[in-house]
Design a protein around this nucleic acid. Structure first.
Lengths: 195, 195, 195, 195
DNA sequence: AATGAATGAGCCTTCATTCAT
DNA sequence: CATGAATGAAGGCTCATTCAT
């Protein structure tokens, strides 16, 4: 009796990889189990021995996506030495990533749009991912203004965080990087002022 | 009416009303024609004599939504006398509206998330709606800094525009109004500085 | 209270014309009332004030087709002076007609294929049309062998009649005129022998 | 079996059997998937796991029909010793078969009537079946006139082939075997003359 | 005569999931 | 673990026909 565990295995990883592409490119609802198993080259039953439902696969996708996306950002910021350069580097990464993916946008925000229900497990992944990003921005902003006190710094961090998602969804909407560039420029100014 | 004309009629309006609720609450893909006709109390064939496809209904929904949402904003800003008050009023409206709708978010951004294809007619409505909003913000910002020249003013306008959508999607993500309040506060500061 | 009479009227004629094209090109079952009224530019109700059902329209189509097709044949044979030339002329006409219509075949035989039921009124039109053609062939063959007695002549006539429909359906099958030419040649030989 | 393979299986065979009866008796377009699965006693999804579309089932039907019909002919001709007897035996078989099926006619010719489009895969089966039959007739005629040269023999073969299909469609039209008998008689005379 | 909205059964197909092997 | 046949509700859409105006 399979417990549809979250344990890792090559087959399971392959399924998540295939699903990740399809969910991201076509959307979660627009992608069927059939297409996933076709492209993964496995049988229906095999799929359901690894995941007890499509939703569980959706959660696995977002969890992996979280790690992957964070890894991309880390790697992209590795060469930057100051918190300021890292914060601006986030926008540079986003511009590159959005262009590379033809402005498909953020997997997490897209999922929140497709799945309204607040108590869906996939929504928890969305919140978790965005909370992490918020914390990361907050950490960098605090470093940048290490000498300053907390309240104003936190507020500036949240502005930058809002600019990040605003830039992503508008670049997606217009299929154009201008919002990302505008948000980067504003962030630059923000970091030059006092908190 | 063989051609599923876009002409207005009470029955057609009723269908769009029913669909508007369902599409917004459940998402476009998650809402079936059957549910729409059940709730509208009409037959399948009747639906398809008014709309030649689900997509055409989707477009009608977004077109109406555009008018409706703009009307809400206008009404909400009617009491404000200065461009500055109006710009801040936009965020106040958004906070009220997002709370009232239990943070379901923006119908247009949600649609862009559900429908990746750039050449879908529904995507054109999304772009059109957001372009209109961008223009509205730009107009108010120009009024606010009537004495200043164009370039810097446009940039500030776009920042505010980015903040608006960033605030909406993050409030939706966290089901909490804090991003809207933060964006409003930043807008306030932006309008107090020189462009 | 419309009696859906078979009376002629400009509107009714137009409907039959439009339907004739569509039934012939696409098949009877594959053609919907909606397409017919779209292309005729009339309303549903108008259609049903002229015909009480699709089947009645089908009958009207075949009746007109009978007259039309016979007219084409007559016109084509008008220049031929002998029964023999007329009989061969039938095959010449068929070759021209089949090529012109891209080998869609005989409306009557196609209808018999689509509608198995023997007691369908459309089937009666098919039988009637083919019986007429059989009679016409018989008449010409009798003229050709005016001095001979009946039995053998009738048999030859039926052979030619079988060749006609065999040539039509095979030209349709292969989309090629060779069966028509072969049948004509055989008919020529038949008419040169003694019955 | 995600790809609705053409592989054979008992369930698949049963579906083809059920569909064969219905398509033949009612016509391809007039037969719905629902009726097929009802009579086969399977679920909708089961059907579509065996065939990826109705058209694929149509092709499978015609392919099986080709084998089956050829088998009937072979069996019917097995007792005949000369090519001449075999050629006449074809008509005897056709008369028996047409009577037994209440003059529903040839599944292939009926299909060509229902499906005008030349590039439909079902039409390819029609052509293939009739080409095979033409070859069979040609082979027997060549045997019959083994001492004669090619051209005239081929022509005679085609005449007999045209007579076969002419006889079938006219017997279907009139629901009477007379055209088959006439065609047989003519074939008999043809085979007694010199080519 | 003519209109065209309304009906609801039916079209072909895909959905997520289960289960015997 | 893996297979893939089986399920049946649901997907979007078209059908021939009716009826109030």
């Amino acid at each position: 009796m399979p417990e549809a565990a979250s344990a890792s295995s090559p087959a399971r990883d392959e399924i998540v990889s295939v699903a990740a592409d399809l969910f991201y490119q076509q959307g979660y609802h627009a992608t069927g189990i059939q297409q996933i198993i076709n492209e993964a080259g496995i049988a229906k039953g095999t799929f359901y021995s690894h995941f007890k439902s499509k939703e569980e696969l959706g959660v696995a996708w977002l969890q992996r996506r979280h790690t992957q996306w964070n890894g991309w950002v880390e790697k992209s910021l590795a060469s930057k030495s100051t918190p300021r350069a890292k914060l601006l580097g986030i926008f540079e990464f986003i511009e590159q990533w959005m262009s590379d993916t033809e402005f498909r946008g953020c997997a997490f925000l897209n999922t929140a749009s497709e799945i309204p229900s607040g108590d869906n497990p996939m929504r928890a992944e969305v919140e978790s991912h965005k909370s992490d990003l918020r914390e990361k921005v907050r950490g960098l902003v605090r470093e940048h203004w290490a000498s300053e006190s907390g309240a104003g710094v936190s507020r500036k961090a949240d502005i930058i965080f809002v600019l990040i998602d605003g830039a992503i969804v508008q670049a997606q909407t217009f299929r154009d990087p201008w919002p990302i560039r505008a948000a980067r420029k504003e962030t630059k100014e923000l970091l030059s002022s006092s908190p």
